[in-house]
């Protein structure tokens, strides 16, 4: 019996293994291809080989020599981090209120935030462009941070309120009985337990801000606040006749690195089952 069971699981494992491999290859192939392109020299760029014949770091060193890319990278990091921080802080407070308190207009608030999340962004670009120009926000960091926060907040509120609902209400009562003010109860008991939710939300919001192209191209005009996805589309070769494919590939690889770092850094903090042991046995 054990033999049969073993054979069955081996067969099952093989099937799953193949399926997983297919999915991973399908998903990662374009990434590998762009990595391969970024390491090719200008002459071999279009030779059709997947593995470069002559490896070179020229593309990387070149993009870091241009202010166009370096400035955009700084803009991207700054804008995404600020937008993420603000969205997570406000999202945490709003989500806590939604999960815990009964206040008039609560369902309206939830409904409106859902509405914002579903609103087609492209239809907001023209009014935002006009508004930001008359307010002097056009082509500035706040000009991008504000719309990012607007769209990231519903996401943050939704994710976080789900996490807050998981935390037993009694913990807060216990903290109150132990002599904590509502603020202390939140900071010392609820916030640490909501941390996995906060990190998850931070990752999602950061990725959203980092990847945005639509707002970034519509609401910026110069290097002052242009983010990397936009800068990439403005790449030109060193001369008019040169193909910028190599540089674009290298830049594309570079901008995935912060995302990977960000996810790896926060993923370690997402510990499942942090609230276990709080209540009952």
């Amino acid at each position: 019996m054990a033999g049969i069971g073993g054979a069955e699981t081996t067969a099952k494992k093989t099937r799953w293994g193949i399926l997983n491999a297919v999915v991973v290859i399908y998903a990662l192939f374009p990434v590998l291809w762009i990595v391969s392109l970024s390491f090719k020299s200008k002459d071999t760029l279009a030779d059709g080989n997947f593995i470069p014949r002559s490896w070179t770091f020229d593309n990387y060193s070149e993009i870091f020599k241009t202010t166009e890319f370096v400035r955009a990278l700084a803009n991207s990091i700054g804008i995404a981090l600020i937008a993420t921080a603000v969205a997570v802080v406000f999202g945490t407070m709003a989500a806590y209120a939604i999960a815990r308190l009964d206040f008039p207009g609560k369902s309206l608030l939830v409904g409106v935030s859902l509405l914002i999340a579903m609103f087609p962004q492209v239809s907001l670009v023209s009014p935002l462009f006009e508004i930001e120009r008359s307010l002097g926000l056009f082509d500035t960091w706040p000009g991008l941070i504000l719309p990012y926060i607007t769209f990231a907040l519903p996401l943050a509120i939704y994710t976080l309120s789900a996490f807050f609902r998981e935390i037993p209400w009694e913990l807060e009562k216990a903290a109150k009985m132990d002599g904590a003010t509502p603020g202390q109860a939140f900071r010392r008991v609820i916030a640490p337990l909501a941390a996995p939710g906060v990190f998850t939300t931070a990752i999602l919001v950061f990725i959203f801000c980092w990847n945005d192209f639509l707002f970034a191209i519509s609401l910026t005009s110069t290097e002052r606040s242009r983010t990397v996805p936009v800068a990439l589309s403005f790449f030109t070769g060193s001369s008019q006749f040169e193909d910028p494919t190599g540089s674009i590939a290298a830049a594309a690889v570079v901008i995935t690195i912060p995302i990977i770092l960000f996810v790896l850094f926060f993923q370690r903090r997402i510990v499942a089952g942090l609230t276990s042991g709080a209540v009952k046995g």
Binding site: E170, K173, A174, M177, P192, S276, A278, V279, K280
Partner: peptide
């Protein structure tokens, strides 16, 4: 200045 023990214990898990 009173202390309470809850049915679910409500211990701080972290």
């Amino acid at each position: 200045d009173i202390a309470m023990v809850f049915q679910s214990y409500a211990l701080y898990p972290h």
